[in-house]
Design a protein around this nucleic acid. Structure first.
Lengths: 242, 242
DNA sequence: TCAAAAGTGTTCCGAATACACCCATGC
DNA sequence: GCATGGGTGTATTCGGAACACTTTTGA
């Protein structure tokens, strides 16, 4: 259903079509975790403006796609992976934020298991590379602002929802989980207390499997139980790590 | 700085300007609180499409405004108030969500002290009216989806940040605050414990003033201390109500 | 045997819970 | 006096913090 344009005048009688001149883009903050470091995948721009600058992977959106589709496409082209955990977090709309025209961008943060994939090169990026979130290069456009907000959002989210698991392999030890949270939040947990707290939540399923090839007592492996979380949440449970 | 368009070809060599055909709008969910009820201000549409339907107040965005400006304008035209507490919460981008073209809308929720203002009529609305958030009419466009997400966001936010005060008059009693939270969250608090918890946070400043004209012992009035909250937050304090 | 990390148990403290109870005001 | 909500005190419980300790593996 497309209605007649005459219906669509603004309060000041501006013709409807005058409003349809925005560009939309998505920018993705892809987080990973390796060797105790939280990392983000950046690309080196292969074209002006900001050629050779590091930037967030992103793209202009075409009229046939939702923002979620567009962000999924960016992540797929970047990693070869589908169904990456991904969540919208903010719209950036400064009038002069993009040098070529009025582009509003929607930020998505996404979480992957670093080991699972190799970032691939693409037409819009000459290179892609993981950066420790505490050692970031200068970025193109307003991407520093976007990335800062993404990091803040991740730190807040990770305390209130069990999404940290998306950064770990499907099977993990409790100490690996603890180290991840320590890297994300920037402080230490007491090992026995962290264990007790996480296990008391009943979100982790112990597996009949242990670490191998470690030069110490091998740790039991666990997996996260998303269905269990769903059930608990409906019963009023709130995931909460301080 | 406007760069030459030749720089801006997509991966498939689509000319840059082909991307600049989106309409942007903002939709505002204005929450209020009165007589123990959480309410939202809706407008009755005065024009097609969805003429005579109840809808969220909103507007198309012009190229010279940020989204925040646009949302502030909507709220100002609606209430006559400036500097209303307001926060972006989601972008809605279903391809067919608007019957006349590709309009992406950004949802803002906002909080006002109901007593402070009278909703005013405007060109795009024949009427505006407060609705209890549990007794909502049928809505235009995808506004039900937007409103539902706004309510969910408010309930979550109100537990983790001291924004509930935005819905109360500047001076309030502890029981008024408790009733507000009970209405927002849908469950009861124990009076002595609620008092102790809130006062122990040191966010409330007791005033040398009490209720008047009440047929019972007049309650002490308090005000919220935003500077104190800022300080505490920087020290690692997390507002938290279960 | 030693290093390293896994894993358990216990004590202590403070916050949340569940109450009972008294206070001040208008009618 | 009595109804109404304001406001305080206390006993109990529960969870988190701190920390000591034992266990299991590889080298």
């Amino acid at each position: 259903m497309r209605l007649d344009e005459k219906f669509y005048l603004s309060e000041n009688n501006v013709p409807f079509k005058e409003f349809f001149n925005f560009g939309m883009s998505v920018d993705c903050i892809l987080f990973g975790y390796k060797n105790g470091e939280v990392r983000v995948l950046l690309i080196e721009r292969g074209a002006d403006p900001f050629k050779h600058f590091w930037a967030l992977p992103g793209d202009l959106v075409t009229a046939d796609l939702t923002l979620e589709d567009a962000a999924s496409n960016v992540l797929y082209r970047l990693t070869g992976l589908e169904n990456i955990f991904m969540e919208q977090f903010h719209a950036f709309s400064e009038v002069q934020r993009h040098p070529v025209g009025r582009v509003i961008t929607i930020g998505y943060y996404a979480l992957v298991r670093s080991e699972n994939h190799k970032p691939v090169a693409s037409a819009w990026a000459t290179e892609s590379k993981w950066f420790n979130i505490n050692k970031l290069p200068e970025l193109a456009f307003d991407h520093k602002e976007i990335l800062d907000l993404a990091i803040g959002t991740l730190k807040r989210k990770v305390r209130n929802e069990p999404i940290g698991f998306e950064l770990l392999p499907p099977k993990f030890t409790l100490l690996e989980l603890q180290k991840l949270y320590e890297a994300l939040l920037g402080y230490k947990f007491d090992k026995p207390n962290f264990r007790k707290k996480l296990l008391s939540m009943n979100l982790l399923v112990p597996l009949d499997e242990v670490q191998s090839n470690v030069s110490h007592r091998p740790a039991k492996l666990f997996k996260f139980d998303p269905d269990r979380y769903k059930t608990l949440k409906e019963e009023g449970f709130h995931f909460d790590l301080q």
